[in-house]
C-alpha cells in the first residue's frame, strides 16, 4: 500500500502546535470581554477551525477520497437540520415545558 499518504513527523508536530495555539487563543479571547452574541460566535468559530484542522490533517481527509469528506459534511448538514427544525418549535413557544 505504497499509495497511502504518510505525514512527516515535523508536519504532525506542526499541526499539534497549531491546535495548541488555537486553544490558547480561545481561552485568551474570554479575557477581553467581547459583547454578548459575539463571544459565542468567536468561540464556535475557533472550535470549528480546530475541528477542521483535526479532520483534514490528523484524520487525513485532505488526502482521502472525496466520499469520506462527503460523509462528514452530510452529518453536519443533518445535525443543522435537526437543530433548525427543533428551534422553530422551541424558540416560539409562549411557555417552555411547564415542569422543566
Amino acid at each position: 500500500m505504497s499509495g497511502h499518504h504518510i505525514s512527516s513527523a515535523k508536519f504532525l508536530w506542526g499541526v499539534g502546535i497549531v491546535l495548541l495555539v488555537l486553544t490558547f487563543i480561545t481561552v485568551a479571547v474570554t479575557w477581553i470581554e467581547i459583547p454578548s452574541p459575539w463571544n459565542v460566535v468567536v468561540a464556535i468559530a475557533i472550535a470549528v477551525v480546530k475541528a477542521a484542522v483535526v479532520a483534514m490533517f490528523f484524520m487525513n481527509l485532505w488526502w482521502d477520497t472525496k466520499f469520506n469528506i462527503l460523509l462528514l459534511v452530510m452529518s453536519i448538514i443533518f445535525f443543522m437540520i435537526l437543530v433548525g427544525i427543533t428551534l422553530l418549535d422551541t424558540l416560539y413557544r409562549t411557555d417552555p415545558i411547564p415542569s422543566f
Partner: peptide, 8 residues
C-alpha cells in the same frame, strides 16, 4: 490534543 498527536 497531545493524545491526538501521538495517535497520528
Amino acid at each position: 490534543i497531545g493524545s491526538s498527536l501521538t495517535v497520528a
